[in-house]
Amino acid sequence: MAPDQTAATTEPVTPTPPVITARVPETTPVEASAVDQAPVVFDVRDLSVYYGSFRAVRDASLQIRQHEITAFIGPSGCGKSTMLRCFDRMNDLIDGCRVEGTLEYHGVDLYDPRIDPVEVRKRIGMVFQKPNPFPKSIYDNIAFGPKLAGQKGNLDDVVESALRRAALWDEVKDRLKKSAMGLSGGQQQRLCIARAIAVEPEVVLMDEPCSALDPIATSRIEDLMQELKADYTIVIVTHNMQQAARVSDRTAFFTTEVNETSDTRTGVLVEFEVTDKVFSNPSDERTENYVTGRFG
């Protein structure tokens, strides 16, 4: 998308070839296996995450595939956000946080000591629950990342392209120099998405991106996600199961297990499947109970 204008000014940061796999829409087993063939971006095997001696997530294994939207659902404390933050090594910022098992990004061990977390975060963008624009102009919010990444000169094209891809351009093109704080919550969140994609990441992580938004703003973001997945791989954590059902290609359901030795809880991955299956006929009874919402 939009390589015409940006190619002149932008050095593509991600080396990934622009393979766009056709999304096979429906449910028969044959088609489901066609979806399986999308290349793996993140390969997670037996991943455990500890905060000090407390184990937050235990032995999770799953694959995030290119140009798909993967949703993480589950009750509070099930480790879905912790898991998401492993993908851009945000957990490194927390004292005492430790990861066991393997997490590979295109076959490269993301937790190899030689890997620079800053480099990781350039390729993997994050959008948070509460929109967090900088207290600067709309233009500067978008231009900030590319500038930091060393882009020089006129960034107008980069800003326009990012805002267009985030479906915000038409609403803000006449007030780019005004403060981003004057935007509505939904617009702010789309600005944050524009900011995340302005540095040309490969993956966009979203941690409950709509939980502070009204239903219309939520629908805008959901529509936007469908457009963005042609260019990016998206992982979303959501408390809204209907949202996971609406937007995602695959769903991972996490839950909590009470530890035998203490009364702490550890997050476990119960089921990771094509979304249609999770919401029509899940394999695990715990998933069924959670998605129907009829048993806690």
């Binding site: 509070s76 404390g77 809880r265 919402g293 009829r294 048993f295 806690g296």
Partner: peptide, 13 residues
């Protein structure tokens, strides 16, 4: 509330 449901197992809705 999933948090509450995790605390007190039982039928909901």
């Amino acid at each position: 509330s999933p948090a509450d449901s995790a605390d007190q197992p039982g039928p909901l809705r």
